[in-house]
Amino acid sequence: MTDWLSPPEIEAVLLSLKVAFWATIVSLPFGIVVGFVLARYEFPGKHLLNGLVHLPLILPPVVTGFILLKLFGTQGPIGSALEELGIVIAFSWSGAALAAAIMAFPLMVRAIRLSFEAVDVRLEETARSLGAHRFQVFCIISLPLALPGVVTGSILAFAKAIGEFGATITFVSNIPGETRTLPSAVYSFMQVPGGEESAYRLVILAVIVSMTALLLSEWLAKRVKTVVEGR
């Protein structure tokens, strides 16, 4: 790999993997809670929550990035509060992870919500008649049965996070080694004379990574489904 990719290219790929990994891990608990709540409960403001979750899918990514910059920048309300705690996420790789997580969140929630909706409510009622309170029902019945969707959602979110560009470059710029992820690196290489070759290599890599993630999520979801249903 070191022969094929130059050090700056490797740096961009590894950074993308790191950003996508943390974006997925940290957003997963929120994705599970939001997916479950949207699948199981009716409450005022449900449409608002649903709209808010899906907004990054529809908004121009540059707008999402701009909003993040205004909120989490060192001058922003959340950013300045975090700065007092010694945390700066604007123009750092953790900011890239935040942007990627928000852009990938709709995909994650959608898959998780669908799989919670597919869990038979009557099994949950049965568990309650056997003495399980709501939290036990969630942990022992609903979540394990929705696991295929949780796996699919996580892998899709991971793949989306690797490829996120618009919101990331707006929010955390394109700093080599800090926020220059794979797509940002492709963009940079396209801007410099003779960078075309590097761009091509990264493009091929991006296609391979995305394709692998898609196939892996399909395959894993099937495997998990088989294990869960005991066939």
């Binding site: 009557r122 099994l123 049965t126």
Partner: peptide
């Protein structure tokens, strides 16, 4: 006890 046994499949 239900008509369909409703055992937990997992």
């Amino acid at each position: 006890i239900f008509q369909d046994a409703r055992l937990f499949p997992h």
